[in-house]
Design a protein around this nucleic acid. Structure first.
Lengths: 329, 329
DNA sequence: CTGAAAGCGCTAACAG
DNA sequence: CTGTTAGCGCTTTCAG
């Protein structure tokens, strides 16, 4: 900046003002300075600016990983969420710092904030670590969590309405005349737990009580899901429909069904959750519960901004919609 | 930091040294300072440190988007690459700034560097904008590109050996006795062009000349790929195998084949490219050419580090391997 | 309308 | 082994 000032024959203060569009600078002076900056490919140093002004336009996005699997957080849903966040933040001229953190040590997120790297952050997924997130929030770390809304929650969360999502999927199958609808997922994950509640609700409203043996425990990783489905099939429990806690699980399960010569949807109808790209191109195309990703990213940002202004934004639940495709009709 | 210094009864210089592990500080002094910092959740301000030391441990990762589609860069391959880069950078204590840039205005990348936000960056994909990348490199922007190696290239690139990848896939099909092997992809993209050359090579080595009408032009997006496949099928050209320029294209094509009652692999064998997660769970499981993602991320970082040290790292080609699955046997 | 000067939080000579 | 001092690149009072 000193160089530009020298070239323009003015002080650095004037250059600073010109570059920031201050109305105090005469038009021709500003013009001259802008041209000089352009010609020399000069841009204000973002770090120095932040330091001086005391504010920070960098927001963090944290994608936790399970300590045992490390690389494996490749669920397309999380990545799609990341993409949407990147778009929204870019539009509003925020920088996006991507951080991978061990899900068992979410407290490391605090360092991102304490060290001034980010003004606040979005954590994608609760990962059953409600307590740690609460602790972070109580430490005054500005964070918004993509996930379910829980009773004693000190942090702001944005999520889709998991219960009604589970309800929609199940009701769709029951309305189609299916009698034995299985649920596949890990009940201990908060989001999945709620989806399972929706599954139960749908049965109850019709005066039904699902056979408890139709609950198929399964983690989110494809290989384990396939294994779980194989085990279930080996037990010989009859079923004519399946609600899965994610599309990845659903697609894995359909693979197992296909391999065993069980036709989808004729013998078993399947509905997934997330409506990832792959759902459209699976065989057969997968019915799914869609979460409004773009709105989600937008909402997460709004909440974070409110938090940074010192407000206490309320947690939000976004609507889900059912996207019926061949796998369930 | 001043606060900690006051509490410890020392100067800020001492605190700084203690926190940076300088050997000049007495052990008990250091200990006391570390405890104080811990207790008050104090961490050195990263921005101020960078400003003073004149170095920057933030690296940029740029994922260009096509101007017309905007959100659509959800190809799992790019996201998987991003995940691997995040892991490698985290391990080496770099911060990762994620940036989305219009593929038609890659020159915007320069601003990231000029403004000191990043010390250097990785651009994922060439997107047919070789010239712009060359211009950036000539402007002295430290960048490494994931993509093909081209003749007059001013920048360092890391990529997999696309030509041998295309060769592997095609040779596998020809060796399996297939006679009419189609190629599906967009010939104008540099990477795909090379894969197509490999496809031609494989034919030539066996003294064959592929029927030019077996080249099926197709972009990378699933819907357009499906359309392209439908069009091709409508023309009634017989084929018994297909090499696709990406797994997403391959899976889309298999969907069309399935829908038309054409069996995979019996009537048409299919091989994809990238070996994304979904390849394992498609129906039938998709044979694919795997690019070594983890090594890729590692190599990209090494090249970038060399560049930052003022060296001129050579472009690198990484080996590809064929992963045969049901879709081609 | 513009300049001089102070200071954001930190590190690194240079002195003790 | 520790303190003093200067300054990284910028913005912003306070004076002209």
């Amino acid at each position: 900046m000193a160089d530009i000032a020298a070239l323009a024959g003015v002080s650095t203060a004037t250059v600073s003002r010109a570059l920031n569009g201050s109305p105090l600078i005469r038009l021709d002076t500003r013009q001259r300075i802008l041209e000089l900056a352009q010609a020399h490919q000069y841009t204000v140093h973002a770090g120095a600016k932040n330091l001086r002004r005391g504010d920070n336009r960098t927001l963090g996005v944290v994608i936790p990983y399970l300590p045992d699997r490390r690389q494996q957080v490749t669920d397309p849903f999380f990545l799609a969420m990341l993409g949407n966040l990147a778009d929204v933040l870019t539009d509003q001229h925020y920088d996006l710092l991507l951080s991978r953190v061990d899900a068992d040590h979410l407290d490391q997120c605090a360092a991102l904030f304490d060290s001034g790297r980010v003004a606040g952050m979005v954590v994608i997924g609760q990962w059953g670590h409600h307590e740690q997130l609460n602790a972070l929030a109580q430490r005054q770390v500005p964070l918004v969590v993509w996930g379910a809304q829980l009773p004693d929650q000190a942090y702001c969360s944005v999520g889709s309405d998991n219960q009604s999502g589970g309800f929609l999927a199940t009701e769709h199958l029951l309305a189609g005349g299916r009698k034995r609808v299985a649920f596949m997922g890990d009940h201990h994950t908060t989001e999945v737990h709620l989806r399972y509640q929706g599954y139960l609700d749908a049965h109850r409203r019709r005066g039904l009580m699902p056979d408890p043996s139709l609950y198929i425990p399964s983690p989110f990783t494809p290989l384990e899901a396939q294994q779980a489905m194989h085990n279930f099939c080996d037990q010989g429990q009859p079923l004519d429909a399946l609600v899965a806690a994610s599309d990845l699980i659903a697609i894995s399960a359909m693979g197992v069904l296909n391999a065993r010569g069980i036709t989808v949807p004729q013998q078993v109808a399947v509905v997934g959750y997330d409506d990832i790209d792959a759902a459209l191109h699976s065989f057969p195309p997968l019915s799914s519960v869609r979460q409004p990703l773009q709105m989600a990213a937008q909402t997460l940002l709004e909440c974070l901004q409110a938090l940074l202004k010192g407000e206490q934004p309320a947690s939000r639940q976004l609507p889900t919609t059912l996207v019926p495709r061949q796998s369930s009709t």
